[in-house]
Design a protein around this nucleic acid. Structure first.
Lengths: 179, 179
DNA sequence: TGCGCCATGTAACATGTTACATGATTAT
DNA sequence: ATAATCATGTAACATGTTACATGGCGCA
């Protein structure tokens, strides 16, 4: 499971509670899981049962108790093993491409409207992502670690720019078809 | 379900059997479902039960019988409604970015090895995709439909090129860090 | 002799989303 | 009043993957 390693990675930085992780997942564009409760708490439990993380309960005044999770030796080892695994190829689920493929059924204005909506939405997403980039969702303990996380963010930003260029170009092509 | 619409789209082009669809899904880079039996046969059954497709059984000599599925009026309508829906944003599941984020634990050679593997694999995938593009997995009944499908393929190819450029650039940056 | 193609399908499992449930505190 | 934040979790559902099952034909 990728989520498992995403959590181990974050805990290798510093201890977090389930709630902290949930916020990181929903607020950061890198951790694409939708701030999902169910999966996070279940995964934490299974990591705990497997001895990859330990936990302490922090009582708080006027607030519910927190369970803070810390990476164990075994968890650190698990993470390091994962880092050495052959990289997974990125998987895109791009329903809009399918939609486009059959969109010749639509009249020119409706088709362009669809494309303009797409352009707007990706542009908005790119801006949100750009803003979130500044939040401290990653460590920069060494110069190299900083470079790596910068590269991760560059990959995200650049991807949205790519999509925007692509759709602009397509709209021009289609406009040219109509004369 | 997106798979539902992917199937309706293909059937709007011409009738197919479940086996045909399965091959299209596994051979074409656009239909990313992994040529998956279970989902395809189940989805076809549910489309059939909902009256969105009709089917005829073709007996064949020395070969198992085929069930050919055809789009119904209701199915066509369903597809057209979908085409007008606001576009979905692309979703990437890019586990390698996460892996990289924590890869400062690795020595320089191992890190570069990981990146070179990634570069190789994406390059290979780009070539496969380029080759598959030539297969007739889409109709070109009008000039505009051709332009649309070209755009879909351009999006795919361009994406892999983008990833390749990105990783090359990162490798150079890291090499510069080491002097 | 064994594999791949044709063509259907099922079982078991893994992963992911939405909505619900509790209950105090603080901000609008 | 109402919603958001803090913090835990569960139930129900949706989607996706891997492996298994059948059985004849043709190829190496």
């Amino acid at each position: 499971m990728t989520l498992e390693y995403a959590i181990l990675g974050l805990l290798s930085w510093k201890p977090f509670s389930g709630y902290d992780l949930k916020k990181i997942f929903s607020d950061s564009p890198i951790y694409y899981w939708s701030g999902n409760n169910n999966q996070i708490y279940r995964t934490l439990l299974s990591l705990y049962e497997d001895g990859l993380v330990s936990r302490t309960v922090e009582e708080q005044e006027n607030l519910p108790a927190k369970k803070m999770y810390t990476l164990t030796q075994a968890g650190q080892q698990m993470l390091e093993n994962w880092l050495r695994l052959a990289p997974e190829l990125p998987q895109r689920k791009h329903a809009f491409l399918l939609q486009l493929g059959w969109a010749d059924l639509l009249p020119a204005e409706e088709l362009d409207h669809l494309l303009s909506l797409y352009e707007e939405e990706v542009t908005a997403l790119a801006m949100i992502t750009g803003a979130q980039k500044k939040l401290p969702f990653y460590p920069a303990r060494t110069r190299r670690e900083h470079v790596l996380w910068q590269a991760v963010h560059t990959n995200l930003d650049g991807y949205y720019q790519y999509e925007i260029q692509w759709v602009k170009n397509l709209r021009q092509q289609l406009a040219a078809l109509d004369h």
